[in-house]
Design a protein around this nucleic acid. Structure first.
Lengths: 195, 195
DNA sequence: CGTCCGCTTGACTCAGATCAAACTTGGTGG
DNA sequence: CCACCAAGTTTGATCTGAGTCAAGCGGACG
């Protein structure tokens, strides 16, 4: 899991702070890009209008992550952002940020590193989604996301994890239970420990 | 589809040129990262060793694309690269590239833009893979990847496209045929045109 | 106290994976 | 020029496992 160190990079930059209640909107698809956001706490659901007129979750930005990275270089947001729980957001003006990068290449380099990690991470999830067996898919995800102690701290609901790896949440619960019964892992609180 | 403009960014930088025959290896998972690669022609298959000891395709880098972006900031390659057809590769020393970025922030900014686009693209594919219906998944992919004329130029085999969107190639062929018979699209040569 | 939502389990169904086989196509080499 | 091979494409038949619907539980929160 790639975690942002953005706050370090941009600590002395002028910023705004927003506190959102669940359901509050941050921006809408098609809006002019003015700000770049960093999630301090809570979670922000990014959705996109689908062809059929529905809404599809494209990403769940958790505490410590940034969102709409690509928007920095585009004029309009290509997705909408809504708080999925009470959230605290730090926002930087897009123009301020780009100007800062002009003058501080080191900050830009950190940003580049951050994005590179994102690319790596997304490709891994993409690969995982090609595993058809639910059990193997779950194991692959845990291997991918766990820390060096073979532990996975779940900073989101199991339902969201299920979505993240492309499984129906019922299937996810079931397979997780089976894996636990087969002594492949232990679950407690917000942790999963691989055996 | 995000296409690289890397050659423009790095045109005057010292580089090496490799010509690979199909099957030739560029680097292996675990190798020390020395160079950063840009595909001029052909295609490079990126694979990763799976837990079970197999090989999983994680990305097919086509002409104009870069590969192993994340490796710029890591010591080892996290995947292996093998030419999937006769390919021409331009390589830059990692150290040269990073030094160039130090002195030319504009180049780094272009790179940042490139990565940001990649992130956007990968999230889109991720979203597409969550669509369960094969037919809808295929349509969503075409919508995503087509140009302004509702045409999609396939620079890879249908089999690879099937893999890219996470379908068994048989299913992909079948649904494509159905869509063609239902006059939703036209297929000819390496093109798909939406109606 | 009621509502919401994540979690859990059961039963059923079917769409897509899988196995199998044939046919194109392109390239290689004798 | 043809024989041959490899790989992509196509179609058929079968089957299974994951999606879906449904229903109940429990904790958080106002």
């Amino acid at each position: 899991m790639i975690r942002s160190h953005l706050s370090k990079i941009l600590s002395h930059l002028k910023s705004e702070r927003f506190c959102l209640a669940k359901g509050d909107s941050l921006f809408h698809q098609g809006d002019q890009v003015v700000r770049f956001y960093h999630v301090r706490s809570g979670k922000i659901k990014l959705t996109r209008n689908t062809i059929e007129g529905g809404q599809a979750l494209i990403y769940m930005a958790l505490a410590g992550e940034t969102l709409a990275e690509a928007s920095l270089f585009f004029d309009q947001y290509h997705c909408s952002a809504v708080a999925d729980s009470e959230s605290e957001i730090v926002a930087y003006k897009k123009s301020t940020l780009l100007a800062h990068f002009e003058q501080h290449p080191a900050a830009m380099k950190e940003m580049l590193k951050l994005f590179a990690g994102q690319v790596r991470d997304l490709r891994a999830i993409n690969e995982i989604k090609n595993i058809h067996s639910a059990k193997e898919r779950i194991l692959a995800f845990i291997y991918h996301a766990m820390n060096e102690h073979k532990e996975l701290h779940l900073d989101m609901s199991l339902k969201d994890v299920a979505y993240k790896i492309g499984l129906a949440h019922e299937t996810f619960y079931r397979e997780l239970k089976k894996l636990e019964q087969a002594r492949r892992l232990i679950r407690k609180d917000g942790y999963i420990k691989l055996l």
